[in-house]
Write a protein that binds this DNA or RNA. Structure first.
Lengths: 209, 209, 209, 209
DNA sequence: TATGAATGAGAGTTCATTCAT
DNA sequence: CATGAATGAACTCTCATTCAT
């Protein structure tokens, strides 16, 4: 029945929420199924009525987080209505807001998480990450072509920007003196300037030791 | 006597080296004392002749890495012989080289590692991190005061720079198209520009939602 | 009403059939209620609408198998119309056919199964086995008395014959070079000769170490 | 040191002995590592200092039992010093004694055990069984060729004999009225007569339905 | 210094079973 | 009749760690 399905879906979500929180606070390995079940208010074995194992829990959390992050900026990949600068601003703003938003975790979990996934699932998650990177790089390349940015290497610049976004979760405190907005503003300016008058792309022909 | 001490020290180093490598590759939790002992060529219990427990191994590795990283840039904190720009260049270059150098690990281990330390040791490690941050921020502040950089918030800017440095370990491949030098050069330029014509520091009086 | 009862009976039979097959292929302990339900095409809890627990399933299968086997040869126990030799031939033939027939299992399951039954049910199953043994021994004794067989110990001889019949299920392959008929013929001859000129019954007075 | 090695070997043997006994009494699946450790007088985890998992325990027990059984009759395979009849007598006697001897189990465990072994180990165990069958059949074939036995099918006859031997463990009671010797004597006579004037081998050309 | 035996805690997972719907 | 949620017990196995030798 509908109510049953709803209940089921709600329980699934609850488990994911508690797991996400615990994974973030204690780490994946240190979080036991018992912990998660306890946080949900039922017995460990019941978790297995919703997820087939701990790894699947991790996978769903990572996937969900990445999907959300991608869908948040997907429209920026090919967007002729806005300038690359404007697209960069939106990309950073939306990302920072997502990362610092109420749904913790999933970001740093990524590095550790990959080690805990089966090859098949690891591959899928990496595909998501690649999709994310693609958008980021496209905006950068468009800015380079339009002359808004300097002749930067889109991969390196992309890594730098992603690094800033990703790690903002680590040092951000919601009770700190700065709001997510302020941080996003600052980071946008910082990155924009970094891109604007940057050195040209590194010479790829020589790789000195 | 001396040789015995030397041998002991050499064993200790060997254990730390293997542990560092394994912690990086498999993660702290997934690395067992058995793994480490196996990599060293002896039995698990022997590890306890050199270290009192697994946590101490983690602590030593984190401490050693941070100490090295700090000592690498300590002279830049108060350095009137060079301009802030020059000091920033050296700071980034040396850090990138350290992070991408042959001694893997300890960088990302940091986040996960903190969770696994006793409060006392966690405090010590955080002190190291603070010392590191202090240097970073001092260079930035000096550049702001000298007018070389814009009026940026030294903490935020420091976080951004540290993020880039820290995560370079994740995406850097020693077999990739770019050398550590090229990456360091690019990142320096990127960061320098980010600092130079950055927006002024966020208005700290209002924290809008 | 009738159709409902019929349907119910059909479901019961289906469960027993799938369980029998699975018990034979995977073993009782390795077969889960989930396995059985899955083979039937419904959910585990539904099994409990037909049987009160797993042990009852086992019991029914064992009982059914033994009942069938006994009913197959019951007429041979006291049969003055045929000679003991002829009765032995029919006994072996019918048993071999039953054991090698399409309904697998229940034979070897016996040994393992006993361990998994409650004392009350174990007792019942043993009673069936005893009834089976009684028929077997009666035929042998009649043959001894009539002079058709040598003075063999009816228990020992019975065990030997039962062993051959029981284990034929293990090594018989329906795709092998021999048919059930051929095997039955051979075994009858083998056993008949074994009984015919056998040594006299062991001297029961002395039991040497 | 020697004493340490001795202790180790003794513990290993103790574990195998207790496991063999328990597997026989309760069955493989119903016997937990806890049971075995408890019978040995130490904690469950210590079992893993001697065996890598439960399956290995099973494998060692099966292997050891089969090896012993084979080595017991290996000399009979090609033995020109004794007549086939005499070789058959020794084969049955030695086997019955082994099977009914103080070292219980491993015999019936075979059928159930195979299901619990990894493919690689299952293959090895089957090789042992085949080696055993080979000896059995060779003695039969030699008897057929020498004219001591009738023209029986060596495979079928072998199965019959093996069945009797294997299952004797099930119904034999050391406190019963018959000694192992008496049983062995009877079975030898029974089998010998079965072979002597047996029907000729089944006609392999036609396999009637 | 190095080892093997032993431990105790705890992990993930499976399973038979119950019960309300 | 059939299901999904939930349980509690149990199981195999891993791990960090200790200790006597």
């Amino acid at each position: 029945m509908v109510s049953r399905l709803k209940r089921s879906a709600a329980q699934k979500k609850k488990i994911l929420d508690k797991a996400r929180e615990l994974f973030w606070v204690k780490g994946y390995d240190k979080t036991s199924i018992r912990d998660i079940a306890g946080a949900c208010g039922f017995e460990p074995s019941n978790v297995y009525n919703y997820f087939s194992n701990k790894e699947q829990l991790l996978y769903e959390i990572l996937r969900e987080g990445l999907e959300r992050q991608i869908s948040l900026i997907a429209d920026l990949e090919n967007d002729s209505a806005h300038s690359p600068v404007e697209r960069l601003r939106m990309l950073i703003q939306r990302n920072i807001h997502h990362v610092l938003g109420y749904r913790r975790s999933s970001g740093l979990l990524f590095d550790v998480g990959l080690k805990n996934l089966s090859p098949a699932r690891r591959k899928k998650i990496i595909e998501y990450r690649d999709a994310y990177d693609r958008i980021m790089r496209k905006v950068i390349r468009d800015g380079v072509e339009s002359g808004d940015f300097a002749e930067v290497d889109d991969k390196l610049a992309g890594f730098a920007i992603t690094s800033i976004i990703t790690r903002s979760r680590v040092w951000f405190s919601s009770r700190g003196r700065l709001s997510a907005d302020q941080i996003a503003d600052f980071m946008f300016e910082f990155v924009l300037n970094g891109l604007r008058s940057g050195k040209t792309a590194p010479d790829l022909k020589t790789k000195p030791r």
